[in-house]
Amino acid sequence: MKGKGQGGARRLVLQFAAAVFWIGLWQVVSMRGTLGIFIASPWQTVQRFFELCLTLPFWKALLYTTGRILTGFFLAVTAGTVLSALTAGFYWLDIFLMPVMRLIRTVPVVSFVILALIMVSSRYLTQLISFLMALPVVYMNVKNGISQMDPGLKEMAGVFRVTLWRKIWFMYVPQVMSAFETGTALALGFAWKSGLAAEVIGIPSGSVGERLQQAKVYLNTPDLFAWTLAVVFVSVLLEKGWRWLLHCFGNPAPVRNRQKGEKKR
């Protein structure tokens, strides 16, 4: 145990040293003549970030973008889960949907953005692009999770005439949960990045994408870096929050964490 603890502390020190090194390098580069004009220093970034935090438009823009990306993401999670669940009963549906899912995964996001801008208002661009980028990831992961269900358990449930809802809740949800968690966490990252990229191209009014675009136009790198920092924070928070939600409410295994002597259900 002692060795393991020492190893952990050593790793922590190394990680800290690595972070200091890269931030130091960033500081050095930002101080170099011409490059310095284009790269805000870490201090300028943090300073600008806190300045932005004290303004209402900053929070409005973050809320606007996060809300729209999450709308697209949740729509993709719902559609992807329902569609993949349906493929368990209708195998032809998977054959039917697969070309579309593969197409969405392969076509560059920018092509979808341009197409979407031609067809829909830029107000709906973020939701649409986030939805499109997250959908195939959720669909494929959940479908794989379902397809790995033990056929012996399915037969057992059939013999004992277990109702569909009990099968879904006690057999499928725990089986698929790990694939669902992986898929949705990945999809959330995709939705976030593609949604922002779409905003930078489509420039919907009041969005983070618009702020990033403005920062680029005015060569305002402290703003660009501060917004990027905010985006990274929100992205990490969302992913952690999503995983936490799934751990709290997503697993129906009632005995998973129950200790001996604890109150029974």
Binding site: L153, M156, F160, P174, A253, P254, V255
Partner: peptide, 17 residues
């Protein structure tokens, strides 16, 4: 063919609610 994460009572009641 038991549901491994459930306890014995829950496994029986899964088939026999």
């Amino acid at each position: 063919r038991l549901l491994e994460y459930l306890d014995a009572v829950q496994n029986v009641r899964f088939a026999c609610p």
